[in-house]
C-alpha cells in the first residue's frame, strides 16, 4: 500500500475513534449531568429529578434534625429561598450566610439533599463584597 494512502487510512481511523469517543462522552454527559440551578429556578422543579443547587444559606434558617440539618438556600443576589433537608458530611466552613453547592431532589414541599453532596465554597478565596455580605 502507498505510504500516503496508509497515512490517510490511519488518519480516518484515528478521527473516527475520536468522534466515537466524543459521541460517547456527549451521551453519557447528558445522561449523568444535573442541571445547575438557583433557588428561584427551582420553582418549576420536577419531583425526583436531581438538581445541583447553588445559593446562600439564609441567616437564621439553620436547624439540626436528627443526624442532619435543615436550612433555607436563597438566591445569591435575591430573596427567593427554598427549604433543604440534608444528611451527610457537613463541611467545616458551612454556616449561615455561606455560599453552598448541593445536589437536591424535590420531595413534597422540600428539597432533600443527596448524602455527602454539600460543599461550601472555600472562604479563603472569597472576595469581601461577594461573600461577606449576606
Amino acid at each position: 500500500m502507498q505510504p500516503a494512502r496508509k497515512r490517510k487510512i490511519r488518519l480516518v481511523v484515528a478521527l473516527s475513534a475520536a468522534v466515537l469517543l466524543a459521541c460517547a462522552l456527549v451521551v453519557t454527559s447528558l445522561g449523568a449531568s444535573r442541571e445547575v440551578v438557583t433557588p428561584s429556578e427551582l420553582a418549576t422543579a420536577q419531583a425526583g429529578v436531581a438538581y445541583q443547587l447553588t445559593g446562600k444559606v439564609q441567616e437564621g434558617s439553620l436547624r439540626s434534625s436528627g443526624s442532619g440539618v435543615d436550612f433555607l438556600v436563597r438566591d445569591r443576589d435575591g430573596t427567593k429561598a427554598v427549604p433543604v433537608a440534608y444528611t451527610g458530611a457537613i463541611p467545616d466552613a458551612f454556616r449561615e450566610g455561606r455560599e453552598v453547592i448541593i445536589t437536591v431532589r424535590k420531595q413534597a414541599d422540600t428539597f432533600v439533599g443527596e448524602r455527602d453532596s454539600l460543599i461550601t465554597k472555600c472562604p479563603s478565596k472569597f472576595t469581601e463584597d461577594a461573600t461577606q455580605r449576606s
Binding site: 453519557t28 454527559s29 447528558l30 449523568a32 449531568s33 444535573r34 445547575v36
Partner: peptide
C-alpha cells in the same frame, strides 16, 4: 475526560442553554 467533565457546565450551556454539572461517578466511570 477530565477536561470535558470540568468544562461540561459551559459546554452544555453553549449547546442546550442550561448549565449542567457532572459528579464524581461520571469521572470515575
Amino acid at each position: 475526560v477530565v477536561f470535558w467533565g470540568t468544562f461540561w457546565p459551559l459546554i452544555a450551556e453553549a449547546f442546550t442553554g442550561t448549565r449542567r454539572a457532572l459528579g464524581p461517578p461520571w469521572f470515575d466511570r
